[in-house]
Design a protein around this nucleic acid. Structure first.
Lengths: 185, 185
DNA sequence: GTCTATATAATGATAGAC
DNA sequence: GTCTATCATTATATAGAC
């Protein structure tokens, strides 16, 4: 077989960047092609289902990232709680470029995205929240308290990203990360 | 002049519903036409600047809604604090249909929307947050504390709407409204 | 596996009759 | 002010050469 011009990971990063910024409807094949360095026909060769398949692959890729940078870190019982917490917060900060980047789940949460990928979105968010529930219970919280705090954590991150983007300042996001650290330490 | 087939308010409601659900890129003239009951050419007659003008008019209309249901209520010194608070929370609950509806500002906050309407979005959100800052100071908080709580309020509403939409449950939004009531009473 | 070229449908937008 | 008909452009998607 002929070798891939662009490796999967690099291609997925390109697809992800465009879809995160433009949403599903706004992400055109033209832009996806430019961002990945592959011509439209080549993308169709790799994704026989077209743009739907690309978005689905992006969400699967993202779930892998959540798994690596959140779930695995928070449930790594070989490391102390404070170390896990610091690592996960720094990971989240990187994920959103300090508050400059939108959340992929939010970009794909308009009607078209929800109806096409609702299950995948829910699954990714569940993984995220469940990671924090496990961590909270591991820290001695009741299931109820851990669930409440995990939801609050997710809500604050999403909300602060909306606010940061809207007012053009990363301050709300940075403040929220501080509050989350305090919540769990 | 020939009378309008559809009144401004009704037309704006139709435009708003589609743009809120689909975002700017996803809102096609076809859908906007169907939702308003006006043919495409009629919409262009009313909005010479095309779709951009429609979105801009929707944002202006929305700012009016925020002004009426949030700013004016929270700063109405002729009524007691608890009454203002109850009224504004019930208004917010209605605005988002109890957590079922997305926030317009979020739908238009993808790249295309931000670059076209960033200033209008920021202005609407500022009005929202400043209303809560005024209310908090009116309740005796320092400016710093009132600002922090107003930001937190906005963040929680936005975040809970994202979460509610994603997991298909209005519970997070309802919980957040309760927490906000408690924060100010 | 990637490409150029092309097919086909949908989009935002206008022209001109009523 | 609203409409039907149409334009030019862009969109998603495919065919077939290399």
């Amino acid at each position: 077989m002929r070798p891939q011009k662009v490796q999967d990971e690099q291609m997925l990063n390109g697809l992800m960047a465009v879809m995160r910024a433009k949403g599903y409807d706004g992400a055109s094949l033209k832009e996806l092609s430019e961002a990945t360095g592959l011509k439209k026909a080549s993308l169709y060769h790799r994704f026989s289902g077209g743009k739907k398949d690309m978005a689905s692959a992006v969400l699967a890729h993202l779930e892998g990232i959540v798994n690596t940078h959140i779930y695995k870190v928070l449930t790594d019982e070989s490391r102390p709680h404070t170390e896990r917490l610091g690592k996960v917060i720094s990971g989240i900060n990187d994920m959103y470029k300090g508050g400059l980047e939108t959340c992929m789940y939010r970009s794909l949460s308009l009607d078209s995205g929800i109806s096409l990928f609702g299950d995948q979105i829910k699954q990714g968010i569940d993984l995220w929240i469940n990671s924090f529930i496990s961590f909270g219970m591991d820290r001695g919280m009741s299931r109820k308290e851990a669930t409440q705090k995990a939801n609050q954590t997710f809500i604050e991150i999403q909300g602060s990203l909306v606010l940061s983007k809207s007012i053009g300042s990363t301050q709300p996001f940075a403040d929220v990360l501080k509050a989350i650290r305090k919540r769990y330490e």
